[in-house]
Design a protein around this nucleic acid. Structure first.
Length: 592
RNA sequence: GGCCUCGUAGUUCAAUGGAUAGAAUAGGAGUUUCCUAAACUCUAGAUACAGGUUCGAUUCCUGUCGAGGCUACCA
C-alpha cells in the first residue's frame, strides 16, 4: 500500500467520522508539500469548507488531530492557511525503503492484459533521417517502454513510405547519373547515397525549368513539362504496373536505404516489432469505402468521387476516393488501421506523428467512428511539435536540415573531447572509453529531446544541446556513476536494511525517500497524455536531490546504522535512476 | 478568410484550478586534508495585453496582439 493511498483512506475516514460526510477515497486529492513547509503530503481544505462548516485553520486542526491520533503513518501535521501539511513517520519511510529494496519490480505494474500498438518513425525512403525523426523516434520508443512498464502488452510498428513520386525521383536521378554506384563503392551509408540522388533530381529539375522558361515557355507550364519530371511520372506508372526492371531497381535502392536506416536505429537504441510498407497498403481501404457508401455514412459525387461530410463536427467535406476511383492518403490509412487491428487486436493504438497532421488524424478517427469500427475509440494521435533551429525552421531546400547521423557523431565526439579535457578516463581501455563517449553523447541527445513536453515545439541549439551541466542526461548519468562508486567502496556489505527506528532521518534523506516513494510510473490516461518528459523530470529531481544529499551528509566513518541506511538509500536511488532512464532509452554508466 | 496549437526570468524548459510561479543556463559571490568538483551553496531576474468565472487563475471562458501549423482529386 502506498503512502498516498493510505492517506486517502485515512482522510476519507476522517470526514466520515468527524463530519458524517462521504468522500470517495480516490477523490481525496493530495499534492506534494512545498519545500518551505514541514511535511511531505498536503491536503487542500478549501473545497471542503462547506462540509466542515468551520474556518480553514480550524478544519485543518481537527482533521490533522484525527489523522495523527488514528493513523500510524501520520506523525505530525501543521496547518498553513487552507493547507493541511502532513508529516509522515520515520517508521513508514523506512518501511517504504525496505519495500523498494526488496522488490525487484518496484515502480512497474503487473500485466493488465491490454494491448497497445505504437506507431512511430515511419520515414520516407528517399532521404536519410533528420533531427525531426530523432524526436519522433525517442518519443515513440519511450512511450512504448513506459506503457510496458505500466503493464500493457506493446507492439512497436512503423509504416515505411516506400513508394510514390518522391521515390521515383531518386530512381530517375540514379539511372541518369549513378553509373552503377553503390553504397560500398561510394563508401557511404545507403540512405545518404539515395538522399544525394534525390537532391540531384531537384537540381536537374530546376535547371530544366530554367531552360524551358528561357526558350519562352511560361513557368507554370515548364514545371509540368520538364523532361526529368515526366520521366519520374513514367517510372511511377511503370512501377504501379509491376514492370520488372523498375521494380528491381526500386527494390535495390530501397534495400540500400533500409541498411542505412537499420544502422541508425541500432545506434539510437530504438527497435520495432513489425514493419508495414506502403507498397503493400496503398491500395487498401476501398472495401471500407464500399461499406461506408452502403451504410450511407459516405456519399458519391456526380463525377464518381467519394466524400464524407463532417460539417456537423465543425470540419469540412473530405475526399476519400478520387473520381477515377484511385485512393488517397486517407483511404490508405483507413485500410491500414483495419488491417493492423486484424493483425494485432489492440485496445489502443498510438500514432506518434508530428502536429502538422493534427487535422488528418482528427478526420481519420472520426471517419472510423462513424463507420462503426469498434476499435476507433482506442486510437490516439500523439502529436508532437516541430524541432526548430536557432536559424528558424528546418528546410530541406535551404539545406538547413540537421542530419541524424551527423548529429549523433557530433554529440559523441563532443563527449569525447570534454571527457578527455577533464581527464576522466584513466584506467579505461580504448573500447571502454569509446563506449563511454557513445553513452554520454547519445544520452545527452535523447534526454535533451525528451525532457520537453512532446506537444510543444522546441528549439534545438546544436551548441547548447551538448551540455553536460544542469538538467541534462550526463548530469543524471554522472550521479549514477558516483553512486556506483560508493557502492563499490562499501563492498555491498550493507545490503540488508538495518536501521534503528529511533534514529531520526535527516532532511535530505527524507526528501530522497519521498521521491523514491513517488517512483511508480503512471501513464497519465485521463487526458491521454503519454509523457516521457515526466520521467525525465523525475530522474533529474532524484539525481539533483542525491547530489545535495551527497554534499550535506558525510556517509562513511559514522554511526554504523546510518552508514547502512545511506548505502541502502544509494542503492535504491541508483536502481530508480537506472529504471527511469531505461524507460527513456538512456543508458547509465557505472563509471565515467 | 476559416480551423488547430502555442505566448512564463536575457535564454532553454517546469508548474492534476492552490501556498511566496519552480529549475537550468548566462551574470554576481563562495565551497575541495575525505567516498568521482561533469558537484554543491548563496545572490539577482518572468506569467504578451484587457476583461470574465472562482474562496483562489500561468492553468478555464471571451476579446486583442504575436509565433507556428493545417486548410490539395500530394503522401
Amino acid at each position: 500500500m502506498t503512502i498516498e493511498s493510505h492517506l486517502q483512506a485515512a482522510i476519507s475516514n476522517a470526514f466520515k467520522s468527524l463530519f458524517d460526510h462521504n468522500i470517495s477515497v480516490s477523490d481525496v486529492a493530495l499534492q506534494p508539500t512545498r519545500k518551505d513547509f514541514q511535511g511531505s503530503h498536503t491536503f487542500v481544505l478549501f473545497p471542503y469548507l462547506k462540509v466542515t462548516k468551520k474556518s480553514p485553520e480550524e478544519s485543518g486542526q481537527i482533521i490533522g488531530e484525527y489523522l495523527r491520533s488514528t493513523s500510524d503513518v501520520v506523525a505530525d501535521f501543521n496547518v498553513v492557511k487552507g493547507f493541511l501539511n502532513l508529516v509522515i513517520s520515520d517508521e513508514t519511510w523506512l518501511q517504504i525503503l525496505g519495500e523498494i529494496q526488496a522488490s525487484e519490480s518496484f515502480g512497474f505494474s503487473p500485466k493488465n492484459g491490454q494491448k497497445v500498438m505504437v506507431e512511430y518513425s515511419s520515414p520516407n525512403t528517399n532521404k536519410p533521417l533528420h533531427l525531426g525523426h530523432l524526436r519522433n523516434n525517442f518519443i515513440g520508443y519511450s512511450v512504448a517502454e513506459i506503457l510496458k512498464a505500466n503493464g500493457y502488452d506493446v507492439q512497436k510498428v512503423q509504416i515505411v513510405n516506400d513508394r510514390g513520386i518522391h521515390i521515383c525521383k531518386s530512381m530517375v536521378a540514379y539511372e541518369k547519373f549513378g553509373n552503377g554506384e553503390s553504397p560500398d563503392s561510394a563508401d557511404i551509408k545507403g540512405d545518404h547515397l539515395i538522399g544525394r540522388y534525390y537532391v540531384r533530381f531537384d537540381k536537374e529539375y530546376k535547371a530544366e525549368i530554367e531552360k524551358l522558361v528561357a526558350n519562352g515557355m511560361p513557368k507554370g507550364e515548364a514545371e509540368k513539362q520538364a523532361p526529368i519530371l515526366l520521366k519520374a511520372q513514367e517510372t511511377l506508372k511503370k512501377w504501379e504496373e509491376g514492370d520488372d526492371e523498375t521494380v528491381a531497381l526500386w527494390k535495390k535502392m530501397n534495400g540500400w536505404v533500409y541498411d542505412g536506416f537499420n544502422a541508425t536505429y541500432e545506434r539510437m537504441g530504438v527497435d520495432f516489432d513489425k514493419f508495414y510498407y506502403e507498397s503493400d497498403t496503398y491500395l487498401l481501404g476501398k472495401d471500407i469505402i464500399e461499406k461506408g457508401l452502403e451504410s450511407g455514412v459516405l456519399f458519391k459525387n456526380d463525377d464518381g468521387s467519394v466524400w464524407i461530410d463532417l460539417e456537423d463536427e465543425g470540419l469540412d467535406k473530405k475526399l476519400l476516393l478520387r473520381s477515377d476511383g484511385t485512393a488517397v492518403y486517407m483511404t490508405q490509412d483507413l485500410g491500414t488501421a483495419d488491417m493492423r487491428h486484424a493483425d494485432y487486436p489492440f485496445d489502443k493504438c498510438i500514432y506518434v506523428v508530428g502536429n502538422e497532421q493534427d487535422y488528418h488524424f482528427k478526420v481519420l478517427f472520426l471517419i472510423l467512428k462513424k463507420l462503426g469500427m469498434d476499435y476507433a475509440n482506442g486510437l490516439y494521435h500523439l502529436s508532437y511539435g516541430m524541432v526548430d533551429l536557432p536559424t528558424g525552421k528546418m528546410k530541406s531546400r535551404e539545406g538547413t536540415v540537421v542530419d541524424a547521423d551527423d548529429l549523433m557523431n557530433q554529440m559523441v565526439s563532443t563527449a569525447e573531447r570534454k571527457t578527455k579535457e577533464l581527464g576522466k578516463i584513466e584506467g579505461f581501455s580504448n573500447d571502454q572509453a569509446k563506449e563511454l563517449y557513445e553513452t554520454l553523447g547519445l544520452g545527452a541527445l535523447k534526454y535533451f529531446l525528451l525532457k520537453v513536453d512532446p506537444k510543444k515545439r522546441m528549439l534545438f541549439n546544436p551548441e547548447e544541446s551538448i551540455e553536460f551541466q544542469g538538467n541534462t542526461g550526463p548530469f543524471v548519468q554522472y550521479t549514477h556513476a558516483r553512486i556506483a562508486a560508493i557502492l563499490r567502496k562499501a563492498n555491498n556489505d550493507a545490503t540488508v536494511l538495518e536501521i534503528k527506528n529511533d534514529q531520526p532521518l535527516h532532511h535530505a534523506e527524507l526528501e530522497l525517500i519521498r521521491l523514491l516513494a513517488d517512483f511508480p510510473i503512471r501513464v497519465k490516461e485521463a487526458g491521454e497524455n503519454y509523457s516521457p518528459s515526466v520521467i525525465a523530470q523525475y530522474v533529474y529531481d532524484l539525481a539533483k536531490e542525491y547530489n545535495r544529499f551527497y554534499t550535506e551528509v558525510p556517509i562513511f566513518g559514522e554511526d554504523k546504522d546510518l552508514v547502512s541506511l545511506r548505502v541502502v538509500l544509494s542503492k535504491c536511488v541508483a536502481e530508480t535512476i537506472n529504471k527511469g532512464m531505461g524507460l527513456l532509452g538512456v543508458d547509465v554508466p557505472e563509471r565515467m
